[in-house]
C-alpha cells in the first residue's frame, strides 16, 4: 500500500465483510423456514437466492429466515423489503422463481406481479 487511495480501496472491499454486523438500511429477503416451508422446498429456495446473489456479486442484501406465517399452502414463501418500500410476499417460490425474483425485484426494484401473494 502506498497511498491513501489504496487504503480507501481496501476499506470499500472489506466493508462487505462487516456490513452484516452493523445494521443500517439495506434490502432484506426473508425466507419462510417453518416445517411447512422446508417440506415445500424452502431449503432449495434459500440456496438458490444465495447462489444468485453470489453469482451477481451482490453483497449488501440481508438474507434471513422466519417461521410459519400461517399460509402453509403458499410455501415456500419469501418476502422482499427494499429500503423505503413496503414488504412484498411471494408464494410457491421454487428455486427457479427465486432466481428471477432476485434479478428483477431485489436488484432492479421491479416487483414480479404474477407470484405475489395478494393482501386479503
Amino acid at each position: 500500500m502506498k497511498t491513501v487511495e489504496d487504503l480507501e480501496r481496501i476499506r470499500k472491499q472489506a466493508k462487505v465483510m462487516t456490513k452484516l454486523r452493523e445494521g443500517g438500511e439495506t434490502t432484506k429477503v426473508v425466507v419462510g423456514m417453518g416445517t411447512c416451508g422446508i417440506a415445500a422446498g424452502a431449503r432449495e429456495t434459500l440456496s438458490a437466492i444465495m447462489d444468485e446473489l453470489a453469482r451477481r456479486n451482490i453483497q449488501d442484501v440481508i438474507v434471513t429466515q422466519t417461521g410459519c406465517i400461517g399460509l402453509c399452502e403458499q410455501e415456500p414463501i419469501i418476502t422482499v423489503e427494499r429500503p423505503g418500500e413496503g414488504k412484498v410476499s411471494y408464494g410457491k417460490v421454487s428455486g427457479e422463481r427465486a432466481r428471477k425474483i432476485v434479478a428483477s425485484h431485489v436488484i432492479n426494484g421491479q416487483v414480479v406481479g404474477e407470484w405475489v401473494i395478494p393482501a386479503s
Binding site: 487504503l7 481496501i10 476499506r11 472491499q13 472489506a14 466493508k15 465483510m17 462487516t18 452493523e22
Partner: peptide, 25 residues
C-alpha cells in the same frame, strides 16, 4: 466483539488506519 481481530481487512473496514493516513498526509 464485532471484528475478527486476526483480520486487518475487518479493522480497515471499520475505518482502521484512516487516522494514521490523515496524520501522515
Amino acid at each position: 466483539g464485532i471484528i475478527d481481530p486476526s483480520s486487518i481487512e475487518e479493522y480497515i473496514a471499520r475505518d482502521g488506519y484512516q487516522a494514521l493516513a490523515k496524520c501522515l498526509t
